[in-house]
Every structure is written in C-alpha cells, then in structure tokens.
Design a protein around this nucleic acid. Structure first.
Lengths: 127, 127, 127, 127
DNA sequence: GTGGTCTAGACCACC
DNA sequence: GTGGTCTAGACCACG
C-alpha cells in the first residue's frame, strides 16, 4: 500500500491518512472514480483502529475528495485530482514555511539554513 | 521579548517555549548565569497560562538548561550554551527532515521541492 | 412508474418503497388483487439493489398489504386499500408533525411557520 | 437545558445536537462569545455518549458556529447568529418541503394537506 | 461485503 | 476542569 503512518510525526493519525490520500490522488496513484481501500481493510494494513480510518474518510468526504457509493465503498471524486494537486503544494509549502520560520527565529542565517536544507533533501532523495 | 508563540504551529505550546528558550541560549540572547523571566511574567507576555510556562521550565531544568537559584528564580546553566548550540542544529534539521520526507512521499521531485523551499526561505528572511 | 426514490430523503430506501407502495394502494394506482412489479423489475426501474426491494416487499407482506400468489408473484391484499388509506393519513401527519415540532423548537412562531408551509405547499403543487 | 433529543427522530443523534445548537444560537438562547455546555456536561444532561456530543461540536466548529478557547471550552463565534438565522429557515423549510413532497406523491390534494398541516400546527403550538 | 452511528473507556495537552 | 484523539466493539442499512 502507498500509505505510511508515523506515530511520532506529531500530526494526528487521522490527519496523516487524510494528507496521504490527498497526495495519492495528486500523484495519480488513486484516480477519480477508483474505490479507495475499505475502512476495515486500510485499518488492518496500517494497524490502526477502523474508527480512525473512518474519521479520515469522513473528513475527505466533507472536503469532496471522496464520495460514497452506497453499499460499495468510497470513490475518488471526479474533480479531486486538480484540487488535490493544488492543495498538495499548499500543504507542503506551509509545513516547510513553519520549519523555516522556526529556523530563522532560532538565529540561523539564511545561508546556514540553506546548507541544512540541501543536505536533508539530498539525504531524503537518496533513500 | 525574544519569543514568539504560534498557536497554529502544530507543536504543543509548552514545547514551543522549551525550544525557544534553547534557541535564545544558543543565540546568546540568554547568557549562562542570567535569570530567565519568571513564570508569571513570561506567561503574561506570551498570553498563555502560567502552568504551561511552568511545565516548559520544568522540562528545561530536567534537561539541565536551566537551574534554580534559591529565592531568585531560574538561571541559565553554565554549560547550556554549547549544548543548546548543538541541539539547535539537530532540532531544526529534524523538523525540516520531517517536512521533506512528507514532501517526497507526496510525489514531489527534488527539483520541485527545491523551488518551494527556496521561495519559502526568501519569503521568511525578507520579513 | 408511480414511485420516486429520493436518496437524499433521509428515510431508508426500503422504507421509501414501503411507504410508496402503501400510497399507491391508497390512491388506487394499485388495486386489490393486482400484481405488483417483480423484485427485479422494480429494482431496475428505481436503479436500486434487488435486495432492497425484496426487503420492502417482505415488510409489506408482514403488514398484510401484499400477499404471495404461488408462481405468480405478489398481489395487493383484498383489504389493503382501506387500511392503506387510514395509514396514509397517519404516516403523512406524523412526518409533518415531526417537522413542525422541530420548527417550533427552533424558535419560529406559528405565524412564521405558517408562511413557510404555505410557500412550500404552493411550490410543490405548482410543479 | 434547551435541547431535546428524540432517538426515534430518524436523524442521527449528533445531527440533532448540531441542529439544536444552531437553533439555540438563532433564537438568541446562546449568544456569540458565550461558552456552550462542555462535552461531558451536555452528554450527561442528554444521557448520550460524550463522543457523540464531541462529534456534533466538531462539526459545529468546521461550520464556524463554534470556536475553541484553549482549556476553557467552546464558544459561539462572533458571526454565528446571523448565519444560524439564515440556516434555520433553510433547515426547517427543506424538512417541511420533503414531507409535503411525500404528501403530494401519496395522492393527497393541496386542500387535504392544508387541513392536516393546520391541525398539526395548532396541536403543536397548543402544547 | 460496505459505510454510518453509537457506546465505553482510555490518554494527552492545556487552563 | 476543558477539548482532542485513539482504541475496541457493537448494531444498522444497503449491495
């Protein structure tokens, strides 16, 4: 499966699921019309409680990323892809902006920060 | 004051206080031997609950950044500066690493991410 | 067909089917002795699952509105019309009573409510 | 307390709570800035599970009717009153419209329906 | 099988 | 004390 939950992320688990579903739609791993894994199945795969998955899916429905097909499951909405693409940029950028704001506030110069960031990007994408 | 609390940061408020005290020590804004603001005073300035400040100070004592001076308050420990300098790098780097890991997981390429990061750094340091 | 299913009605689909069969009998659209559409046919027409229709028909048999004719299907019972007429009043009245009770509870005066109701009746019967 | 839960309403309990909070704000029973009953307190009063109240309150937060005051509770938003007033009309009208649509579909004439409605309004407001 | 709702009880951060 | 989150397990409606 394309999800990975990190209990130490700081973000709530249901929120991690929400973000990752959006990312999967943005990437095209999930396509409009496609059924997402069932609540029970995803819960089993991620080793979390079905209610937690249900909560994430519910939020994704109110945000119109998913829509329910009675008795069949939940389906990616037709216009979800473009919305998720836009939102992905914003979600990532704001999280990075927060980290950068703290870095600056900590007294690091832009140059020192630049070094750290480049090293981290290199490390991450080398995996 | 050298602190800035952001309720929307995602981090717990007491944790933000802990980090910012460490950063202030690393920057030299707070020097070894210097007394930090009292719980009540800092709570008033940051408009947060005194219990939250007390909790942050308690953790800082546990981590030997602060030590109590009977009847005077809390002062920055003698060896706090070098420790805080080291930790600053690590705190900042790990938060950035988390954001970058999510960015990669979301399907962004290193190049797309680089663009976002540079833009955010420029924005932040232009303030 | 004399039925109309509204997925957004709030009522369960099988319950909508039950009510509408009763109403059809009350109106005389379905007469005692007449055969109702088969489960499969009605399911196809309403674009719902045959199980849902079967469940509605089962309840209608339990309530003696329909009775099975071996090898033929389900027919409207002899005494169904008068019973359905009585029940129609009660079903409609109680649903309206519920809506009115909520309206009152919401703080609307009888006059304000009267205005809303008359407007809605006019709108509905103008269709 | 100004709430009343009816398990036989058909509506989900959490939805009944959501609607009634909105109605209370619309009526002025709850004023902007005022703290609503705590999750645990309201759960106790209504004899339902705290999670059910929490779910209702959460939805009210996403709809900007309530906002949280850290450690203090949940407060009615500044602009909630006018929004709730508008929504009350719409919530009531649509529920009534549904009942009326069914009444018409059942074969009742506008006149017969009018009689039923007036009787129900009289009954309800005589309580 | 599916999602939707509800209950029960737990731990956490914050005031 | 407050809300926020998570787990566990139940029942219902629908396919």
């Amino acid at each position: 499966m394309f999800f990975h939950i990190d209990p130490a992320d700081g973000l709530a688990i249901y929120d991690q699921v929400v973000r990752q579903v959006k990312f999967a739609v943005a990437r095209g791993v999930l396509s409009p019309g496609e059924l997402v894994p069932s609540v029970r199945e995803l819960a089993r795969e991620l080793a979390i409680n079905p209610n937690t998955v249900a909560r994430a899916y519910q939020q994704l429905q109110t945000e119109k990323v998913l829509q329910s097909v009675r008795g069949m499951g939940l389906q990616v909405s037709a216009d979800a892809r473009s919305n998720c693409r836009k939102e992905r940029q914003q979600l990532i950028a704001s999280r990075i902006a927060q980290a950068i704001a703290e870095a600056r506030q900590s007294g690091l110069t832009a140059e020192e920060l630049q070094v750290i960031v480049e090293k981290q990007i290199a490390t991450e994408y080398a995996k």
